[in-house]
Amino acid sequence: MRTLEEKATSEWIRFQEEIGIDILVDGEQYRGDMATYFAENLEGTEISGLVRSYGNRYYKKPIIVDELKRRGPISVDWFTFAQAQTERPVKGMITGPYTMMDWSFDEYYGSRADACLAFAKLLHEEAVALEAAGAKVVQVDEPALSTRFDELPLLVKAVGIVTKGLTAKTVLHTCYGNYNEIFDYFNQLPVDQLDLEMSNSGLDLLERFKREPLKKEIAFGVVDVHSHVIEPESLIRERIEKALTIFSPAKLYIDPDCGLKTRSVEEAQGKLRNMVAAARAVRKARGLT
């Protein structure tokens, strides 16, 4: 299995290089599910049966049955493997503490805050290990960010524990939430860059960003990862141009709304190819490097 996972990882690294992506990911070919992967590599957890997320998508949910402990590095060897295949930076990818807590059943802590902060402590160790292994960018994925607005202070605290003291560029990714409700927290998030799904939300947020500027970099999702349709370059270009009416080019990164694992290989490649082509066309038209 490891051989096949390495082969798939190498292929995706090569593909991203070939089409000209600047900051790469390892494609998480070895992760069944983003929360389960970290949970099954920690002590104190069991993995449940399948639970539905939406449509025909299911995942095995972690169950916290004892005190959480880290046995050792979790994703570092895969980061090292992927980074060795390319000169370009590969992102270290961590599922955030709030999402780990929210997507786990808790039979031990009995308090969402306690479980979340326990995850944060262990994921900080993982982030430090990724940085030590050479990660120039560490991304914390928090798709559960907008789950409970009253818990946003907890999320800010927990992500702050994960990113504390890192010199690598830190990114927080989130998706599919009511951004208007959480907008006030965007500038409080203890990361350098915010990565948002924008095309699925119909670019609704742009007006708000115009009124209330983001003080961080933004990674701006321009292709819908839940649609079979491969967006044409012209449409993506329009979306990037719209983003540039609000964000300065130096602070704007272009990416898909979210991970592409729910798409076929052809769809994923088509979306990424058009995305890169659109970004290049915009750069050229505006004389950007």
Partner: peptide, 13 residues
């Protein structure tokens, strides 16, 4: 239309 989180669950509608 597109996916939106369903209340405070890990599911989407």
């Amino acid at each position: 239309n597109g996916l939106v989180r369903y209340f405070d669950t890990n599911t989407y509608y």
